[in-house]
Amino acid sequence: MSIKINHLTHIYNRGTAFEKTALQDVTLEIEKGEFIGLIGHTGSGKSTLIQHLNGLISPTEGEILLDGVNIHGDKKNLRSVRQRIGLAFQYPEHQLFEMTVWKDVAFGPNNMKLSAEEVEQRVEQALQTVGIPKELYGKSPFELSGGQKRRVAIAGVLAMNPEVFILDEPTAGLDPKGRDEILDAIKALHEERKITVILVSHSMEDVAKLVDRIIVMHKGRVAMTGTPGEVFSRVEEIEKMGLAAPQISYVFAQLKAKGYPVPTDIYTTKDATKALMDLIGQVKLC
């Protein structure tokens, strides 16, 4: 499913003293199966944007087309839009409420009037994808660790079989291990289901590890879009927008500035080690 955003503008509290333009003439296209990182500092408009995609708020101007159909065109369509575009909010574990992990994940599909077998299959698959072991299915979700809880909450959205999955800050507040578990789960769901994933994050390291394309929002506009390598090689511009590139990108920017022959599109420790080994191999240059 392709998403096409045409000249989207959103103004909060229009005509009042609190009028604020959150999105200004945003035009974007997201292809089926893409893995997108949406970054921007607080107030850049990224949350407003994803709330439009899920039909939670309506554009002031412009439109959003899902496979060519305007999602805000007919209110009756919104229910199906929300099934096709799943949204996991920040701290999704706050929305867990059932007695067991299994029941919690089954809540969404149960409300979709599916057969019992279909529900069972979806729940099982979703829990498997996010890496929750069988022995936890019967446990209360509140007994789980922070990272596990969040994965159960993500499985709840996944069980609705969305075609596009939007995750808002899925790693906020987790420890490094919990963070890696969530990121692995997201990676798995993208690879297994070939669905479009939009990852909203402040964490450049997280984004760098996973996505194909980064969209940088700044002051309600799309400021940059490109592969992680393309975006993170523009360290100075990113900083001006109140963001930060992964730590290792700065090392390469500084080495480059000192005249060393290094690439500047490095953002993971693996690529960095390789690039530095290459550089050290040519030592005799200096």
Binding site: D175, P176, Q247, I248, T269, A272, T273, L276
Partner: peptide, 14 residues
């Protein structure tokens, strides 16, 4: 279950 800064990890790998 903890992490180290990226530069520390690269130094370790080197």
């Amino acid at each position: 279950g903890l992490d180290v800064p990226q530069v520390t990890e690269v130094a370790y790998e080197l």
